[in-house]
């Protein structure tokens, strides 16, 4: 078990955070720390805007930083489960980024 950092970009909608936190509990993963910010500088997320053919507006999306203790084998499963949540746009760990289930080369970290 290693401490790992995950970054999520998700819609800033009521109930979105609880879906993420709830999923950790529901699937038996542990959260060590969690930090949420609304995003107003989208410069690092241009690649998402391009892929989704959308334009983010102020306060529309949030950035979530989660530290979690998990094994290697669980990591991919967590990323995929998180990305399956309707409000989660993209999720990264050190190695991998999923944008709506699709593996990307870019990273959110």
């Amino acid at each position: 078990m290693i401490k790992r950092k995950l970054i999520l970009i998700m819609e800033n909608k009521p109930g979105a955070l609880v879906r993420v936190v709830g999923l950790f509990h529901q699937r038996g993963y542990n959260i060590e720390s969690l930090h949420v910010d609304p995003v107003d500088d989208f410069s690092s997320y241009k690649f998402i805007e391009e892929k989704l053919e959308t334009k983010f507006k102020e306060n529309e999306i949030s950035r979530l930083t989660i530290q979690t203790l998990v094994s290697d084998s669980l990591m991919r499963q967590i990323l995929r489960q998180l990305n399956k949540l309707i409000d989660v746009i993209a999720v990264s760990n050190e190695e991998t980024t999923y944008l709506k289930g699709v593996l990307l080369d870019e990273n959110l970290l």
């Binding site: 998700m10 989704l52 959308t54 989660v88 709506k100 289930g101």
Partner: peptide, 8 residues
């Protein structure tokens, strides 16, 4: 139109 939902 849900930009954060895009099943394969």
């Amino acid at each position: 139109n849900i930009r954060s939902y895009n099943p394969p």
